[in-house]
Design a protein around this nucleic acid. Structure first.
Lengths: 103, 103
DNA sequence: TGCTTATATGATTAAATGCTCATATATCAT
DNA sequence: ATGATATATGAGCATTTAATCATATAAGCA
């Protein structure tokens, strides 16, 4: 396999490698939201949220549209939820296995 | 959802957010391998590879066993392949969609 | 036009990451 | 015990990432 594949793949993982970005993706599960809603929900600095949104957009996970002075972000890559679920399931399974070992 | 969930989840993604680590996971697909095989395969510094292996192990993705002077690493979390495949499929789909837009 | 609000971006700083070189540790063979 | 080999780890440095503050840009309103 062309090694560059691993590089682009790594970029995707990097985009999800921050808790705040994962929270954003979850928050957008039910549909698009205005930045003006996302920021107070996360209770983080507006500029910081803006950069995390930009990172997710760069990775192709989110997309955005402008409406007047507002910007609405939405999930572009719906597969992201399947990926997030798989990771969570996988980690839960690991914990269960460890629990068995310790019991 | 408890926000700490996003933190542990992010750790998993971080573990896969480097091309070399993804290559390692792929290399171990057919079974465990000795570090003495992994290093020349990757053509990277032994100490560097050692650290990447440690990172994957910390994340629960790999495990290792010692045999004499050698150490064998193997995939502990088999779900990782499903996750890697999903990400790749998802990215391919995005490219196809973009191609349609540009055509 | 000038004012206000929403969002993005530049600059700075602190912290984390990745790499390399050198060295430590462990095991095995002589 | 000595030496050789495999792997891990400490120290140092360069790069990247994240956060914050301040400011730029753009749209809408008076």
């Amino acid at each position: 396999m062309d090694n560059r594949v691993y590089e682009v793949q790594a970029e995707y993982f990097k985009a999800l490698s921050h808790p705040l970005r994962i929270r954003i993706v979850h928050y957008l599960k039910e549909g698009e939201r205005c930045v003006c809603k996302i920021v107070p929900y996360l209770k983080e600095e507006q500029s910081n949220v803006s950069r995390h949104l930009a990172a997710l957009k760069r990775a192709g996970i989110l997309s955005s549209r402008k409406e007047g002075v507002s910007v609405y972000y939405r999930v572009q890559d719906e597969n992201v939820y399947e990926i997030l679920d798989l990771v969570l399931d996988s980690m839960k399974k690991a914990v269960r296995e460890k629990a068995v070992i310790l019991s």
